[in-house]
């Protein structure tokens, strides 16, 4: 057993933070929170606090990266040094670079990049406070920042993870569950379209468990999607 590992993850059908197995942490989304950016969003998801800004379409620098037939989408996931218990060294590490890549690929399928040849659409995701599930929080924030910037897109992209703790399949891992659980499965989808734009997994799922967790993660995405829609309507719905 590792240091800080709880004996049991689920007691009387409740998780350590009081949630039911299929329950999300509290999620709050706000758009249009930054002045300079073309679009922005702030997401609080459990203890995660994440800011995303979208700039573009704009001129591509360096110029050779420009594509004659479409815009290039660039995503940067970055963790603030103070976002975690032990200070994180500033600048991109291997984990951030991988997350930046899968985030871009999670969003690319919905963005009409073909409408803006020779431009760049840049999305910057800053993790201000991390508490398990930052990549999903980042994708949710990034997708909202794109919508807020008026970038044409097929749909918003919700993301949510499911996992396994103490042998049980649960939705949206907390930090203790993430650190000591047996599996983590982040998923992003295009709602109503049966398209999975991100799926990653680490840990151990036995036969049957994977399917159950996957379905649960997709259900979680749909719950997040409702919160995303509401946030946009709330901010701009007065029109």
């Amino acid at each position: 057993m590792k240091i800080g590992e709880p004996e049991k993850f689920i007691i009387d059908g409740k998780r350590l933070d009081g949630r039911k197995p299929g329950e999300l942490r509290k999620v709050k989304i706000e758009v249009g929170v930054l002045k300079k950016a073309d679009g922005s969003a702030y997401v609080e998801w459990g203890g995660n606090k994440v800011l995303a800004a979208c700039y573009g379409p704009r001129e591509v620098h360096p110029k050779h990266l420009a594509r004659a037939d479409r815009a290039i989408l660039r995503c940067t996931y970055s963790m603030a040094p103070f976002s975690v218990t032990d200070r994180k060294r500033p600048g991109p590490d291997r984990r951030s670079i991988e997350i930046s890549k899968v985030t871009r690929q999670a969003l690319e399928p919905v963005v009409f990049t073909n409408l803006f040849p020779r431009t760049a659409i840049d999305v910057f995701i800053e993790i201000l406070q991390a508490q398990a599930g930052t990549r999903c929080t980042g994708i949710v924030a990034a997708s909202m920042a794109l919508a807020d910037a008026g970038i044409p897109m097929r749909n918003l992209v919700p993301a949510c993870a499911a996992g396994k703790v103490g042998g049980e399949i649960v939705l949206d891992l907390s930090d203790v569950e993430d650190n000591f659980g047996e599996a983590d499965l982040p998923v992003a989808i295009v709602p109503q379209k049966d398209e999975v734009t991100l799926i990653q997994m680490d840990g151990n799922f036995e036969k049957g468990e994977f399917e159950k967790a996957f379905k649960l993660a997709v259900e979680g995405c749909m719950k997040i999607y409702e919160i995303q829609k509401e946030a946009l309507k709330k901010r701009y719905g007065g029109a």
């Binding site: 807020d148 910037a149 008026g150 029109a239």
Partner: peptide, 24 residues
């Protein structure tokens, strides 16, 4: 027909578009 933007629906006789609320 679906919207690709956040905006207001502008429906003409045989033509539909979105008046965007935000955008470059």
């Amino acid at each position: 027909i679906y919207s690709a933007l956040m905006g207001l629906v502008d429906e003409k006789e045989n033509y539909i578009r979105i008046l965007p609320l935000r955008g470059k």
